[in-house]
């Protein structure tokens, strides 16, 4: 028994260590002249189609993230959360859980959004690039936290499912300057795809919770 309880404590300890390591001191930097940066960007990406160039024009939130290299000053935190939360659209019928089997496909699909993709390519969430989910999938990245047992660990709480929907739709509405893409707001994934991912995390039948 003692062995089991020790093992259960381990991830919490690891999490705490990772968190404290993250809170590194901010260093003062002299920002580069924005006009000069723009000139460089133009010289390299200026021949791309206008809609592609628009995608690398930082919005208000990304400007703050870039200026602070994602270590947001506390004064900006609430502003970003408010701004990004306004860009989240929830399903009209209030149903947040789609089909976990479809979600599994979305999580494994890393295609879409690249200049080499043929037109009409269905984009995926590419979740496994950064997260562990289903334990059966051993090829997972570590840029994000493990999401194994995500729904189970949260007792399948509907409020937590809503938080997950928000996080996938627009990560910065939850964690300002998060490294995670804003899948819904940036129109990478459809509402249905996001619901299917929420199901992958929160359906008790999903392999993520097995």
């Amino acid at each position: 028994m003692t062995n089991v309880s020790k093992l259960a404590v381990l991830p919490i300890l690891i999490g705490a260590i990772a968190f404290s390591a993250n809170a590194s001191a901010q260093t003062a930097r002299k920002p580069a002249d924005p006009a000069l940066v723009d000139a460089y960007v133009k010289s390299t990406f200026g021949k791309a189609p206008p809609e592609w160039q628009a995608r690398i024009e930082p919005d208000e939130t990304l400007k703050v993230c870039n200026a602070h290299r994602n270590e947001v000053p506390s004064a900006e935190v609430d502003k970003i959360i408010k701004r990004e939360l306004a860009k989240v659209a929830y399903p009209a019928d209030g149903k947040l859980l789609g089909d976990w089997k479809e979600g599994k496909k979305v999580a494994n699909n890393g295609r879409g959004g690249q200049f080499s993709d043929p037109e009409g390519t269905v984009a995926g969430g590419n979740c496994y690039a950064c997260h562990q989910l289903d334990l059966a999938e051993v090829s997972f990245g570590t840029l994000g936290p493990s999401l194994t047992n995500y729904g189970k660990d949260r007792k399948f709480d509907p409020e937590e499912a809503k938080n997950a929907y928000t996080k996938i739709y627009n990560s910065q509405a939850v964690v300002p300057c998060s490294n995670m893409p804003r899948f819904g707001t940036n129109k990478v994934l459809t509402e249905q795809q996001i619901k299917d991912l929420v199901a992958l995390l929160f359906d008790p039948e999903s392999p993520v919770n097995k």
Binding site: R55, E57, P58, N66, G113, A129, G141, T142, L143, P181
Partner: peptide, 22 residues
């Protein structure tokens, strides 16, 4: 500098020790 539909910069993948994609 972050940008594109995924909000990625070089630093998204190359600013921490011991990380991996897949």
């Amino acid at each position: 500098r972050r940008g594109g539909v995924m909000d990625f910069s070089c630093a998204t993948c190359h600013a921490e020790d011991g990380k991996r994609i897949r």
